[in-house]
Design a binder for these strands. Structure first.
Lengths: 220, 220
DNA sequence: TTTAGCCCGTTAAACTATTGACAAGCGACT
DNA sequence: AGTCGCTTGTCAATAGTTTAACGGGCTAAA
């Protein structure tokens, strides 16, 4: 395996997008693609594509380009989508249920093996054949099944306590939908966090819409 | 209003986070905060905070710092949270329902005024007192209510057609949860797009977990 | 087999973003 | 009123990211 140097975060963030576009090309039966053509499709520079891919090895060939299927598989492997990391979901409210139902975990490198909630009404129900257990059962469950990651779909107020407990129970990664800023406290402890701050995203949209309106007004 | 120069995207993306932290301080009854203190709480440099805030004007005072409430309100105003931009939701599946139920639109500068789906089973139902209508009714609805933005919680396959129709109907902003890369086609047309690519985020987490495991193995 | 046209990998340059440094202003205490 | 310590706003330096340029190798066609 290559990947000696530390790969920049910016590159990593682009990989899933490459993967998505290559998957589409594969579906369309496209066999080869040049960085120039892909750059036109994706709206980025060909230079960036070549530079990004080169972080992980020379997958292309001069005068030919890249083989779509090979590249698709290589990126899957880089992202670790060929594994099945066990993940548990904490919080089976609106958002938690939607995430459990909506995401294709198996195609993204994960397997959902447990769901936890503190609401007695929900406990005992199942989502996608996975039983909802009491949050009290998190520790015993982890002792048996050792999930690698946890998805947090819980209120901000519960996030600190639960994340601490999960880390103590051996969870290494978090997909955090709560408004709590998890990464702050967990850095440098061998814990990785991926935040999905939906309301931040919505506020960004608000800003951009406002900026758009202001600009149009100014143009008059 | 200040904000003459074009503000960098990186700064905008941080504003909601500032807003979140300031809101918390406000709840705790904190009256003033220095960039140094805030930087410790947020895990970024004080320099960056001062530089970011200065893009929009000098809200602080030497020897004192920033007034928490004033700054909180200023950022709300910059982000446009004091407005109520009308927004419609397209797609009332798992994800769409969760978004409608879960997000506090009124506190983020928006007001949800309509929901659309093509499934006859869902049409006629309501979410948060908002009626679910047929997607056939999008155009007449827009002619009457002129929504500023649309939330796309629909499959990739439907995204292109619906976004085209919505743009034709006068929608200016998209909060896009579909796997379709909306921004590509809509750039430079006075349309703003904020993508929430959840599966990209999940794949990023997969990469980071893999990298973590690899590093631990290498350390042995 | 030769040649022309592509296209990759790589290095260098341009650009952007973050961090550090410091002068000047404010507040609090003497 | 004067002084000390703190903190901003801003400029300069550093770090990081993106884009451009180019040598050389591969493909395909003559």
């Amino acid at each position: 395996m290559a990947q000696e140097k530390n790969i920049s975060k910016a590159v990593i963030k682009r990989l899933p997008r490459y993967y998505r576009f290559l998957g589409e090309l594969l579906n369309q039966g496209v066999v080869r693609i040049s960085s120039r053509l892909l750059s036109e499709k994706m709206g980025i520079t060909a230079s960036q594509i070549r530079q990004d891919l080169n972080c992980f090895g020379g997958f292309g060939q001069q005068g030919y380009g890249y083989n779509v299927q090979v590249l698709h598989e290589e990126i899957a492997s880089i992202l670790g989508l060929d594994r099945q990391a066990d993940v548990i979901l904490i919080g089976a409210g609106n958002l938690g249920r939607a995430v459990a139902n909506h995401m294709e975990f198996e195609q993204r490198g994960f397997r959902l093996i447990g769901i936890f909630d503190k609401d007695p009404e929900l406990i005992g129900q199942t989502i996608k054949d996975v039983l909802i257990r009491s949050t009290d059962k998190i520790e015993p469950f982890c002792r048996v099944y050792h999930p690698t990651a946890a998805i947090l779909c819980i209120p901000k107020t519960a996030a600190k306590e639960l994340s601490d407990r999960l880390i103590a129970a051996g969870v290494k990664g978090f997909w955090n939908f709560s408004h709590y800023d998890l990464a702050l406290n967990q850095k440098e402890r061998g814990i990785v966090v991926e935040n999905v701050h939906m309301s931040d995203s919505l506020m960004t949209l608000s800003y951009e819409l406002k900026a758009l309106t202001d600009k149009e007004k100014a143009a008059e």
